[in-house]
Write a protein that binds this DNA or RNA. Structure first.
Lengths: 142, 142
DNA sequence: CGGAGATAGTCTGCGCGTAGACCAAATCGA
DNA sequence: TCGATTTGGTCTACGCGCAGACTATCTCCG
């Protein structure tokens, strides 16, 4: 019990992410995107460029987001005219995702903004170290 | 642009923290505490054992939490009978925090549970590496 | 064919996490 | 001393993040 918890790894992880999220939010604010909106837009856009029009489930899997939240955020993106959700004729339960022209124009700019934040945020540490360490923590089975 | 973002440090940081938060929540659930409730209870308890009865602001500074959320969560802890918020006679705006007998009994158990999660969660990596890396990311000015 | 179970998506509810506005009390300075 | 500013705390609002329940559809198997 060595509080104050300045040395607790979990505490540091938590605060590092909070700080990172604030930086990301500040960078995406001018683009009128939240962090999660960005992630889903970017993932959908990337899949679209590969010729895939994923279901919401597939996108959630790709982005590592909760399916229920994905549903909700995608509707927000749809309301902003950045994506379209069309019913899959082969499975009328599911919806295929298509990034609109406006979304396709926004996505690369948002990605650049986020990569810029990442570069600045992680500048104090070596890239390979971060990826190795966080990769193991984010998904120990990988 | 190397999506899927499996290699993006920010993406990994985000997901590592999400996973950690789920583990923490699972460990604290049986104690009827959320993560933030735990942090504030533990910090207040620790300060109390040092003979300090901090204001909410001071506790928020110690825990690195938002002041407004701290206010709200402390009222939840008060409703559970874990802390008391008594008006400071020297500054009637402020409230001094005192962990109750019940809170003082719960805090060490919760701390043990969280330390257990941390030990398991960070087992795949070296403790010194994590602290060095996350410490710099959590507070680059330190 | 028809019922059982699985799957895609949505709805409700709760607790952070952050921002902006607000109030009351304390402090500082002319 | 009185007014301006600062400080401690609360309120409202919005968007995650997660859990549980719900509908509609699809699939599989007898």
């Amino acid at each position: 019990m060595a509080l104050p918890p300045g040395e607790s790894p979990g505490f540091l992880l938590w605060h590092a992410t909070l700080r990172w999220q604030r930086d990301i939010a500040a960078a995406l604010g001018p683009l009128d995107l939240t962090h999660v909106q960005f992630v889903l837009l970017a993932c959908a856009w990337w899949l679209n460029t590969r010729g895939e029009h994923p279901h919401q489930q597939a996108l959630a899997r790709q982005a590592g987001t909760d399916v229920k939240m994905t549903s909700q955020v995608l509707r927000a993106l749809e309301a902003k005219g950045l994506v379209e959700r069309e019913v899959d004729p082969l499975d009328t339960r599911a919806k295929r995702l298509r990034v609109t022209k406006s979304g396709a124009e926004l996505a690369p700019r948002a990605i650049a903004a986020v990569e810029d934040v990442d570069a600045r945020f992680f500048r104090p540490v070596a890239h390979a170290d971060v990826v190795a360490l966080l990769g193991r923590l984010a998904d120990p089975d990988a």
